[in-house]
């Protein structure tokens, strides 16, 4: 167990160290209500990271999720602002995400184009298209949309609950269902998977659609947290999600990774910036520390691989 999941446990160790330090130097860090608020604000990122992790297990990558997140947020906002029913707003955001994902998937799986290039192209195209259409003007949402009409605490538990449900469901699917195994198989060796009766291109297409739909869901989870939609939202989200996945042990080369690791990686990266604020570190150290943590997490793995002579 420890040997097989060395990376996940080493990241968990770093996370626990950070938390322990916070417990000593800034116990306020764990005050329940602010903690819940911070987790709720970060929860959509976890959902996106889950999608990214599945894409990476299938040996692809998707850097368009940040732009897609903004598009889905605006779609959700516009539908809601048009006084259409709430479920329709949610459904249209998820559908917009799925369509965006399907576009990526069709280009990657259908035409066998490299995913990093395809999603680089959709990233700029969606972002600039949205800027042309919306010009950065905020969308005011109707009153009932925030927290889906629930009291705030209820809404926060709901958002966090959805994130955890998505994580657990994806973990179960990836581990126990044939389709999850198929993603692993395609990521490890597409040709072997094909010979074993799996249709690799269909799997790849499906993975992109899923990531798109999860991005749409994440957008809704973010939109309900405030009464306005900022169309510039989601900038750099792709890098944060990829960082969470790789720190959590998902291999860029495909075939390896589990969602428990993604959770740990996500928590570690999500708590660093607030932790620095709590202990009063100047903001100009943020990026350097963030980068160092990412490197440390992977260097531990690299040193071990080297020792094992792999």
């Amino acid at each position: 167990m420890l040997k097989r999941h060395f990376r996940e446990f080493s990241v968990l160790g770093v996370l626990l160290c950070v938390l322990a330090l916070m417990g000593v130097f800034a116990p306020d860090f764990f005050a329940p209500q602010p903690l819940l608020s911070r987790l709720t604000a970060a929860a959509p990122k976890l959902v996106v990271a889950c999608g990214i992790a599945v894409v990476m297990v299938g040996r692809q990558i998707d850097i368009s999720v940040g732009s897609l997140f903004a598009v889905c947020s605006v779609v959700c906002g516009l539908v809601a602002a048009a006084k259409l029913p709430l479920p329709l707003a949610v459904a249209s955001a998820v559908a917009a995400g799925a369509i965006g994902g399907a576009l990526n998937g069709a280009l990657v799986a259908g035409l066998r184009l490299p995913s990093i290039v395809v999603t680089l192209a959709t990233m700029v195209t969606l972002r600039e298209g949205l800027r042309l259409a919306q010009q950065g003007v905020f969308i005011d949402l109707p009153d009932g949309l925030q927290w889906i009409g629930l009291p705030m605490i209820g809404g926060q538990y709901l958002v966090c609950g959805i994130a955890i449900t998505v994580l657990v469901a994806m973990a179960a699917v990836m581990r126990h269902l044939a389709i999850g195994r198929a993603v692993h198989a395609v990521g490890s060796d597409a040709e072997a998977a094909r010979l074993a009766g799996i249709r690799p291109r269909l799997v790849t297409f499906g993975v992109f659609v899923l990531t798109g739909a999860l991005t749409g869901l994440a957008a809704v989870m973010n939109v309900v947290q405030s009464p306005q939609v900022d169309p510039n939202t989601g900038r750099m989200l792709e890098l944060e999600a990829i960082a969470a996945a790789v720190v959590g042990g998902v291999a860029v080369s495909g075939g390896r990774g589990n969602l428990g690791g993604v959770l740990v990686g996500f928590l570690l990266l999500a708590c660093i910036t607030p932790a620095l604020t709590y202990i009063g570190v100047k903001p100009y150290w943020d990026k350097a520390i963030q980068g160092t943590v990412i490197l440390l997490a992977v260097v531990a793995d690299g040193l071990r691989n080297r020792k094992n002579g792999r």
Partner: peptide, 23 residues
């Protein structure tokens, strides 16, 4: 030397180098 994937390493140094410039 550590046989780490370039995408991850340079994602880390992307943050680190910019962070050093800011610091």
């Amino acid at each position: 030397a550590l046989r780490l994937p370039p995408l991850i390493v340079t994602l880390g140094t992307y943050s680190l180098f910019r962070g050093l410039a800011e610091a």
